[in-house]
Design a binder for these strands. Structure first.
Lengths: 233, 233
DNA sequence: ACAAAAGTGTTCGTTGTACACCCATGC
DNA sequence: GCATGGGTGTACAACGAACACTTTTGT
């Protein structure tokens, strides 16, 4: 059982991040072009080997800090372990994959060989990284619906139509500003800053500015069904 | 093997399973009493070292088959990676944790030093295994609400009140048979077998028998909110 | 006849969507 | 004034919870 753990071969452990952001209404992922074999010139996720005294989340945060300023990553969460024996040629490598988010207003410096690519039509990906990106995308989409995770994609302050653009890009379909407003307000996720933004040259009513009430992820709509019976009163 | 203090060797990888079932309306987890140090006499999750040519899911299935007949495990899913450097004394060990379910009608043979314990009041647990059990419990509870995962806890055929007992035990609160029926039927998860069960000695109307329409896990209630706009017709 | 258990019908509140309408600004 | 974009009000349908009521059995 847990006694007698032996690792007969050199199993290595790496951490990988699917770093997502929304720009111009489209969901993008940060990819890095491999220079060397295997899979040279294919695009892969940022990450690397796990350090000895390091937990997986600390490791991915550290490794991202070497490319993206850590403060610019607004959310980090475990996605899954990818462990197929043949997922990489050569040595056995197990990957802990993460979903990371960058807010829309930030533009972290990234090395020359890395760039942002649309999640819906990514370039040739290395190893199983394409599957990881899809998992990240699906996880984000699901969580937009029942958590406040939108805060991690949005700038600190925003108008509803700017937020609509972000949600729309992340979800991959049109979102109504009216209903987005209502849903998020009803759940108490939004609070007005009190200020408004000036309309553009084409006129229009000035838009009210909002911010997210909380800046850490929380489940806002647990148990749609089969919830505990109401307390008698 | 070398369970004592050793020089910082290679990072090892283990797989652990929180195997859950419902019995007599209470959610139970399979735990094993450690014979040796560290954490002797504390209770730990079944699992063990990852084999060389083995993916993590294959590994946990194999290791469970050594204790529980594999056919009796009705569902296996990844929970998370536990990787805190000090999660176990001695060597560095990273754990991939799984949620596994056993249906109510099966009673797999387990070794003498393992047993089923109530999730709500578990005995002293070893290492971080207590936290893993809680994660498993929460994941199960959440998924009961938006997937058909109940099939993995229920026998192949059942009455609504038997199913109510199972859901109630797993969720930890009273569930109304009326509404459970309605919710699961509306989603198309239940189909009648056509047969009924005889009432007990105290009388009562015979209960109709049902089965789950699908025996693999599927999301049945995706996107409570922010769903794509209705297709025009 | 009565109790017990199962199942159905109905009401209610809440939620989310759709859509019409009003508001504030630039030109 | 009028176009434009922002915001609110309202109608509607779907869903789930609660509960009353009916159905079918055993004693």
């Amino acid at each position: 059982m847990t006694d007698g753990i032996t690792a007969p071969g050199p199993i290595r452990h790496e951490v990988l991040a699917a770093v997502l952001r929304v720009r111009q209404g489209s969901l993008q992922v940060l990819l890095w072009e491999r220079a060397r074999e295997p899979h040279a010139h294919r695009w892969s996720l940022p990450g690397g080997a796990l350090g000895v005294g390091e937990g997986v989340e600390a490791s991915i945060r550290r490794q991202l800090a070497e490319k993206v300023d850590l403060g610019q990553v607004s959310h980090v969460e475990q996605l899954a372990v990818f462990s197929a024996p043949d997922r990489m040629p050569g040595d056995r490598v197990i990957a802990s994959a993460f979903l990371c988010l960058v807010p829309e207003h930030l533009d972290p410096e990234v090395p020359a060989d890395t760039g942002w690519h649309p999640v819906e039509s990514p370039p040739d990906t290395a190893f199983d990284h394409g599957a990881i990106v899809l998992r990240a995308r699906d996880r984000l989409r699901a969580k937009l619906s029942y958590t406040n995770i939108g805060f991690a994609l949005a700038p600190p302050e925003f108008t509803i139509s700017a937020l609509r653009e972000i949600y729309s890009g992340a979800l991959g379909h049109r979102v109504s500003a009216t209903n987005l407003q209502r849903v998020l307000s009803r759940r108490g996720l939004l609070e007005p800053t009190g200020r408004t933004t000036k309309p553009g040259r084409s006129g229009g009513r000035p838009a009210a500015e909002f911010r997210f009430a909380q800046d850490s992820v929380a489940v806002t709509d647990a148990f749609a069904v089969l919830r505990p019976p109401a307390a008698p009163r």
